[in-house]
Design a protein around this nucleic acid. Sequence first.
DNA 1: CCGCATCCTAAAGGATACTG
DNA 2: CAGTATCCTTTAGGATGCGG
Lengths: 128, 128
Amino acid sequence: MAATDPIEDLVADVFARACTSRGVLENVAGKWGILALAALSDGAYRFNALRRRVDGISEKMLAQTLHALERDGLVRRDVQGTIPPRVEYSLTPIGEKISFKLLELIELVEGEMPEVHAARARYDDTRR
Amino acid sequence: MAATDPIEDLVADVFARACTSRGVLENVAGKWGILALAALSDGAYRFNALRRRVDGISEKMLAQTLHALERDGLVRRDVQGTIPPRVEYSLTPIGEKISFKLLELIELVEGEMPEVHAARARYDDTRR
DNA sequence: CCGCATCCTAAAGGATACTG
DNA sequence: CAGTATCCTTTAGGATGCGG
């Protein structure tokens, strides 16, 4: 391992089992984290509005996802002590940076979907 | 939903439950997919070499991950019919594009790790 | 060396019901 | 409205053993 490439140096430790950034990546890029952060990129959401936006997520998973992201400092939780309660979720500056990168990833993947579908058809074809 | 923002248009459907790109995103950005693609960014790997590189992954999960990525057209599988068998995995052009974006994400997250750790300490502190 | 197949355990995730 | 708690089902994932 020469490690003269600057990008290599930064990325190297993520391959180590015990690397703590793996856990953050799972929160951020996992099934629900990526969608929650992407949704919050267009502004603050209340709990149930966010739940409607991220179609298919259960109440439990949304709460769990938001807690993890709040703990990591990517999402801010603002509670107005009114009745009925009003809780707003929004991105922190770090959350915004990561969310923006995730949007780029989503955009990239969506742009390649025709090729992906073609590849899948080819793959499924050759072994049927 | 006005949908006049160009980035919004591209991203919108990922929030729909039935969107097929969600599945691709899970393969790509999931716990193991992100590491496999990132590892392959520095060239072709044989199965067991890749397994050593992605520390902690089991044989089963690596095989499963590589199959999914191969089916999606992101990873190419080259078999040399020698004995013992020699199988090399490498990125397709689309795989390279996505891998590069993932490396940027990893780099970004790793750069924010000090802040993330601080946020976690604060969070855990206030509720103990 | 590559990599299925099987079995089994642990964790993710959904549905429902209930509280401030 | 914004959750928490519980139960239950499904899936992820590790270990092991065999075959090409």
